[in-house]
Design a binder for these strands. Structure first.
Length: 473
DNA sequence: TGGGGTTAT
DNA sequence: ATAACCC
């Protein structure tokens, strides 16, 4: 199913003509008049963004191949959170209500995707696979990864120079159909990057059976923006000269990754509607509205500049499990929900092997207008409970429930009627178990403390501290 | 809108 | 602890 390699061949080497082919016919968001003058910066990096196609649906189709050629949606509560391309052809969209989706497509097959375990596991397999090629892999959600392949490109470049410079051709699309200039060192590196991106996608497909898109560019931001250009299972290379065209193709600022809901609201009050407005906006005014840091960051993004590194994600920083519902309004119900969430969560952490030192309870209260705000309370886990994650058996659930109920009462006065629509439990502040070698201090401490703790009483002191004292760092 | 995640303040 | 961001 792979898209064929598009040769950048002979005619592509248009030496001096640094400007890409004029593509002014597209109705772009930016007015003709004021193109801010900025050169594409010479960062020298090569970054790939990999974005799996309708990830949850793909995982479900692998789990049950019968679903392959049917329109398929993945459902959480009453929402179709994602769907395969058969379903999209028939008008089903991401985050559509089940009702609307069934109206659009009566034959739609739905699978429940509220348990993320299969997606999480597959997701980490992808990240680990990419990690075999290169240590610099950063996750973004479950279905996206950034890979900094600068070093691999350099290595290939050297090999090519020694073996006498064979043909280099682009793999996949080039944004804007811009001609490649093989006399331009930056172009050559990015072209090699496109070949490596094709190999990464190939490995993800042959080893895991998953398809996805890739974007190749000189930084994370641009690689992410360009990866969506050709949509299922294709890849796109961005050359520096087309950077402005790419970012100006965004018709609204909220499509800029890094500019979310809140910032969009503020920018709109300032009269900033599209990317060109943001590029041209007075920096000092922007800094007053958003703070220096955010202002400078997003204004640089508006030019396609992003010096943020690809930061290896490593193992997760937190483990959480949540459930949403129509109504939960008594303490007993809260306790039941928590007891439902915990065993799975505890098992996941146990598999991870590290010990959490912080626990958090998050709630969402029903309310008509600002239904999207949550509150949380967290506390340090008492050390003896942290340690129980290390090993099997003993009932760690009950003391955790006790702690969580105390956290709950810190947020909610149970004597006043309440109406929750979500509960979430999160463990964070994960530490490796002291790698107790024989003879080390850690070994003796670990051996000596646990023997006599039935683990019932010490829970009391955890949340009792009126000062809320957290032993957290 | 769900069921997750991250970092900055 | 919250607020912002990402999927």
């Amino acid at each position: 199913p792979w898209s064929t390699t598009v040769g950048a061949g002979g005619t592509a080497a248009m030496a001096g003509g640094a400007r890409g082919p004029p593509q002014d016919n597209m109705a772009r968001a930016c007015g003709e008049g004021r193109a801010p003058p900025r050169q594409p910066q010479p960062s020298g990096r090569v970054v790939v963004h990999i974005d799996l196609d309708c990830f949850y649906a793909q995982v479900e189709m692998i789990r049950n191949p019968e679903l392959r050629d049917k329109p398929l949606g993945v459902q959480q509560k009453y929402i179709v959170v994602t769907c395969n391309y058969e379903a999209r052809k028939r008008g089903v969209k991401k985050m559509m209500s089940v009702k609307d989706a069934k109206d659009k497509c009566p034959q739609l097959v739905l699978v429940n995707g509220e348990d993320l375990t299969p997606y999480r596991e597959t997701s980490y397999k992808v990240t680990e696979l990419l990690g075999e090629f290169c240590p610099l892999v950063e996750r973004l959600g479950f279905d996206e990864n950034f890979v900094d392949i600068t070093e691999i490109v350099e290595k290939r470049l050297n090999q090519l120079q020694q073996s006498g410079w064979s043909r280099v051709g682009v793999s996949g699309h080039v944004y804007n159909h811009q001609a490649v200039n093989l006399h331009d060192a930056t172009h050559v590196r990015l072209v090699i990057g496109s070949q490596i991106a094709e190999e990464l996608r190939g490995a993800i497909y042959t080893r895991l059976g998953l398809t996805g898109c890739a974007g190749v560019a000189s930084n994370k931001f641009l690689s992410k923006l360009v990866s969506g250009t050709f949509k299922p299972n294709q890849q796109t290379l961005l050359l520096p000269e087309s950077c402005q065209d790419l970012i100006r193709s965004l018709d609204h600022i909220q499509k800029v990754p890094g500019i979310g809901y809140k910032t969009t609201q503020r920018l709109e009050m300032l009269g900033v509607r599209n990317v060109c407005d943001l590029q041209a906006f007075p920096p000092a005014v922007l800094e007053k509205e958003l703070g220096v840091s955010a202002a400078q960051r997003i204004q640089k993004l508006s030019y396609g500049e992003d010096d943020s590194p690809v930061t290896p994600s490593g193992p997760p920083q937190s483990f959480s499990d949540e459930d949403s519902f129509k109504k939960c309004s008594s303490e007993v119900e809260v306790k039941e929900k928590i007891e439902e969430l915990l065993p799975n969560l505890v098992a996941r952490i146990h598999r991870d092997g590290r010990q959490p030192h912080t626990i958090r309870l998050t709630i969402r209260q029903f309310s008509t207008d600002k239904w999207f705000s949550r509150e949380s309370r967290q506390c340090a886990l008492p050390p003896h409970l942290s340690q129980k994650f290390g090993k099997e058996s003993s009932n760690i659930i009950s003391p955790l429930v006790d702690i969580l109920m105390k956290l709950f009462r810190k947020m909610i006065d149970v004597d006043v009627p309440f109406h929750l629509t979500l509960l979430s439990v999160c463990f964070s502040n994960l530490k490796d178990l002291p790698s107790s070698k024989k003879g080390s201090i850690g070994f003796y401490l670990k051996q000596m403390s646990p023997p006599s703790g039935s683990g019932k009483r010490e829970v009391e002191n955890v949340s009792q501290g009126e000062g809320s004292a957290s032993w957290d760092q």
